[in-house]
Design a binder for these strands. Sequence first.
DNA 1: GACCAGGTCATCA
DNA 2: TGATGACATGGT
Length: 273
Amino acid sequence: MEIKVEDFNLEATLESGQVFGFTKDSRGRYEGVIFGTLVQLYQDREFLSIEGNGSAVSEHSIRTYFDLDHNLTILYRLLCEDNHLRSIYHRLRGLRIIRQEPWEALACFIISSNNHIKRIQRIRRNLSQAFCRSEFRFPEACDLVSSDERTLRELGLGYRAPFLLSAAGYVSASPVNFNHIRETSYEQAKSELMNFPGVGEKVADCVLLFGFQKYEAFPVDIWILRAMRKLYFRGRKVSGEKVRAYGQKRWGLYAGYVQQYLYYAAKSGMIKL
DNA sequence: GACCAGGTCATCA
DNA sequence: TGATGACATGGT
């Protein structure tokens, strides 16, 4: 299947550290699972080709997953009007925030804390292989509940093993709570997520942004902290909390999107830190 | 072989 | 309320 896409940058979207289950081959083709179906993706300018097994995925689910029907005109205006962000806009236009499945987002961002992206990907793959006999399919919460801390530590989770186990237990016991988090306000949803052990401000913001499309979330990790201090605080050592409040106030409902452009730009060296 | 990583938590002043 | 150190592990 081939679909026409506007304003979409597959590479920036998949390489920007928001999702950890895709691999890229030597020809630039990405492989991963979208809403339960294993697919291969390749973009050639405005054409996105999707190959899958059997009936594969529908165009609708691809458009949903990559948020392709979200008009980003306002985001682009915000980026262009900002002297610090204009060049990032020109380099990364088309980067979109994926509509990740909430459980996978929660699990992967619990794993992400104080960890390298390469290692997050590796741990995710270890979980897939151990519980799903697949390189890409991510285990459900109920699959992990029947496991134990020692097993998870052996898969590389380290001290995060009990955190993931606890989250899996909670989620598999009452999956309906995800609907509540989706429907309630950003503040309320965040405070509920932060009841999970291993979920603090930053992880909660990532889960809300990537798993629940709460675009006012502004996750502040070490890269965002460095970039924001340099660009908007004259290098002063302001706290993550101040940076988050500033980002949310400045960019409102596009704070999460701006954050993602900034993060990828900072990590890939577009911003000199 | 240090230092670091899409941080969180407990502890202490 | 804010500062500090421990935490597992492997990438750089």
